[in-house]
Each structure stands twice: as structure tokens, then as C-alpha cells.
Amino acid sequence: MIESMRERFTRVAGDLLAEDNRTVIVLAVIGHAAFSQQGLVGRYPKRIVDVGIREQAQIGVAGGLALEGFKPIVSGYAPFLVERPYEQIKLDLTHQGADAILVSVGASWDSSGSGRTHLAPEDVTLMATLPGWSIHVPGHPDELEMLLRHEHSLGASAYIRTSVDLNSRPYSTAPGMISTLKRGSHGSPTVLVVGPLADATLDAVDDLDVSVLYSSTPAPLDGDALRALVSGTDVILIEPYLAGTSAARVMEALAGRPIRLHSHGVTEPDLRHYGTPGDHRTAHGLDAPGIRDFVLRSTATPAWHAH
């Protein structure tokens, strides 16, 4: 059985508690059971702080700990970690000059059966409004571990978004890198896919003349790498959250070039349907057939014929 990102997170957080006595885990119930089962709550009773179901206090407490020189790692469900206490993230961390790592579970459609209250495909867009935050969307537990250890060693502010969806293998071997998964001919369209949709995207475009680039770090986006790797006019951005979230950063990286950007992602955050994560991927057009359809539609009119 493959280890989930959530399991890997708990294990690596335990390592960071052992390796650095400035590490403090701040929870609002979610995740407590996993830390307890690993024996970590018993081993670090002071440095695993659970404030109960109080997400405003969760971020405020993390801010106070950061002001005292600690390195808080704050974890919870994306809508309750990022959306409910957004002002606390803005003021209790960023405005204070205090840093923390936020690690969310429950990405986009992970909690499909729970409906809208537990779905937050807006999280990356929202976090990207705050200055100074790195945003990571790993596609594999190995990437999650690399990114979490990297950000902890930096002591900067980072949002790391774990998901139930995984790629079959890690595609990123250094924090923030953009890697090439498939090389098309010179001038062919470039597909930039973020995080756990890489495998579905590779399936979708297997027989098409396109390049596929991969990133697990939408912010800051590696603009130098993107400029070096994009050779054509059509750029297709595929993100497992709100469509167009990284569009401005992609266009900024490619400024001065004649680029047609096609952004694919979640366009209807409230489907008013339950079911499985697979049902939701299909509904959003983010399974392999949906991604293939989007790529074909985006490239149906050659750029030089576009008006």
C-alpha cells in the first residue's frame, strides 16, 4: 500500500519535532489522532498544541509562537485552515513579520462526499494574494517530504497543499523546479500541469505533439525555467484548483512574447453533487478525457490563424 501524503506529513513532522526543538505543531483537532497514533503527542506534549475546534485561535497561537522564535507547522482542512481565518493569516503572521508553515488536507474535491462546506478549490488563489508566501502543491509523498523539509529549514512562510490524488512517481526533485515530462517538437504547444494531475495529463496527451512541463510550486513560479522551456505560442495551464490561478504569473514570466494562454481548472466550485473524488474530477473536466478535450479545443485553431 502506498503511503498517503497525509501519513507522510505526520511522519516527517515527527522527524522535525525530533530534529529541531523550535518545531511546534499547532492543530485544531484535525490530525490529532494521527499524531497520537504515532506516539508523538506522548513524546512532545508541549510542542504539539491542540486548541480544539478554534481555527482563528489556531493561527493566532501560531503567530504568537513564531514571535517567540518557534517554527510553527499548522495543519487542518483547507477551508478551515485558509478560508475561515484568512484575516488571521494576513495579520497574525504576515503583517507581524512572523512565519509559519501551513499544511492543508482536503484538497479541492478530496472531500467530495461532504459537499461544498468541505471543498475549497479557492485556497491557492487566496493564499497567492498574500505577499511573501511560497505555495506548494506536491503530486507525490516524496515531493511533500522534500518541500516540507525545505521550508522548515528556511523558516519562511509556506502553504503546502496535500491531496488524496497522487502521481505514480515524483516528478520534481528540487524545491520550486519545473521539470519536462514530455518533449514536443519545436514550436508545439506547451502544457504546464501542477501537482497531482500530472499522470492524467500525460495519459491525455500521449499521442499529441505537445510538451508537458510539471511544477509542484505555483508560487513563486520558476519564470526563468518557463521562459527557457516554452518554444511555441500556445500555453495550456492545468491546475487542480480554481482555473486561471497561476495565469498572471505565467504571463508575467512570458512577457513580451506572443502567447495564447488557455487556463484549465475548477470553474464551478459548488457542483451541488456528492459522490467520489473521481466523479468530481470528471465533472470539472480534470480527468484524462476532460484534459484531452481541453487541450484539443485549445489547439484546434493554430495560433497563426487566430484573430
Binding site: K46, V49, G60, G69, E87, L91, Q96
Partner: peptide, 20 residues
């Protein structure tokens, strides 16, 4: 300035001073 932020921060600081 925004109301309701100081006390949660103070709780975090008090926890931190205790750990240290």
C-alpha cells in the same frame, strides 16, 4: 488595529515562553 487579534497572539506567546 483590527480588533480581536491580540489575545490569540498573546496565548501563543505565553505557550512559547512556557516551552522555552
Amino acid at each position: 488595529g483590527s480588533l480581536g487579534h491580540g489575545l490569540p497572539l498573546a496565548v501563543g506567546a505565553a505557550i512559547g515562553i512556557g516551552i522555552a
